[in-house]
Design a protein around this nucleic acid. Structure first.
Lengths: 199, 199
DNA sequence: AATTATAATATACATAAGTATAAAAGTCAA
DNA sequence: TTGACTTTTATACTTATGTATATTATAATT
């Protein structure tokens, strides 16, 4: 990647910010208007950015410039609550989505949840965190999972011995649950977490 | 928001996935090709989705449909390391970015870092987490900050009494640092965190 | 002075994309 | 069956957008 001129850096920064703000790339004319320059001038800057590898082209589409390593995202629906149907359900109607890189979701079906309570606090999962769960994937021992325990959703560490499933809280004040005593339905395993610090 | 027909839901899902994967909205013709339908058919689906409020229009731009509550994102550069210049530096050249909703960054200048070590583990910040830091904002007591301590970056809890700054690890095995003994340069405060669970 | 790279303008044209219109099936309930 | 609604096709037209070309100006370099 060759060094950019100051003007080229400014154009790149504008494109990056425009894209993040508007969810699409700017047109040549939109860039030109922003810098109060002619179309041809921007054409040359884009040509330079393309030849230096800071941008790439997607055919001759409108708004068809792209970042060379732009990672694709998957929309993941944030559910208000989890229930037995969540496993099968198609979620096309959720109003809140978070966007995760596809190299994390890897074609797995996912949903997201807000964490309530402190049962996994020692593992770094605290009240208010949003967690992303991959559905229908067999968890390994030690994985953190979301499970329905007697129809209540819970975030716990998964252990299986023979046919018995154990769900352990990392916070010692909560007891370990077992499929011998409870009705346990594992929904999926934890693959991602985001936390917002307010104020 | 009115109920969508099955076909409308499918079109919505396609648009959402296309947008996340390609970073732009599909054109009418791209949608039509995907479903192997005519342009006019998709036009009507879009009209229905617009009138039901599932989509909105941005003027008569190309690829000019949008989600009603699409949250704008800000690109935040993930830095390999932090040093004294980070505070002033313009970061236009970083190769890795994460994208954060603008309602979180709120026009603040931000950068991102990978967390190393376990000094804040009891606060839910563990080795490998990526944290987003807002630059040049006066932290309040109790905020978690990134600071340069004798030119080494550290993530700690901030306390100020008079003119003396204290940096406290939530993990008790690390001592509290004080500006009486060390050279402390607060870079900014923690506003966001993401964590990936591998495997 | 000649050369080179960058930065800018102006104009024209081809194609990508949005939009309007007319018309025909299919579904479903009254 | 009638009517309302959804789903679909086909064609035409306008506008938005990408692209090509020719030209000028400025600064740094040889």
């Amino acid at each position: 990647m060759k060094e950019l001129t100051d003007k080229q850096k400014k154009v790149m920064e504008y494109i990056r910010t425009f894209h993040a703000a508007n969810g699409m790339m700017p047109t040549v004319r939109e860039i030109a208007t922003n810098f109060n320059l002619s179309i041809g001038s921007i054409q040359q800057h884009l040509r330079a950015l393309l030849s230096k590898g800071s941008l790439v082209k997607r055919g001759s589409l409108s708004r068809g410039i792209d970042f060379p390593n732009r990672r694709a995202f998957t929309p993941v629906a944030v559910l208000g609550s989890v229930h037995a149907g969540t496993f099968l359900e198609q979620i096309e109607d959720a109003s809140d989505y978070i966007y995760i890189n596809t190299d994390i979701t890897r074609n797995r079906k996912c949903f997201a949840l807000k964490v309530k309570g402190d049962s996994m606090e020692p593992s770094g999962i605290v009240d208010g965190d949003t967690i992303v769960v991959s559905k229908g994937e067999e968890p390994a021992n030690g994985d953190i999972v979301v499970a329905l325990v007697n129809d209540e959703s819970a975030v716990k560490m998964f252990h299986k011995e023979g046919n018995i499933i154990y769900l352990k809280s990392s916070n010692p004040k909560y007891p370990t649950l077992s499929s011998e005593n409870c009705n346990i339905d594992v929904m999926g395993k934890l693959i991602y977490l985001v936390r917002e610090y307010k104020g």
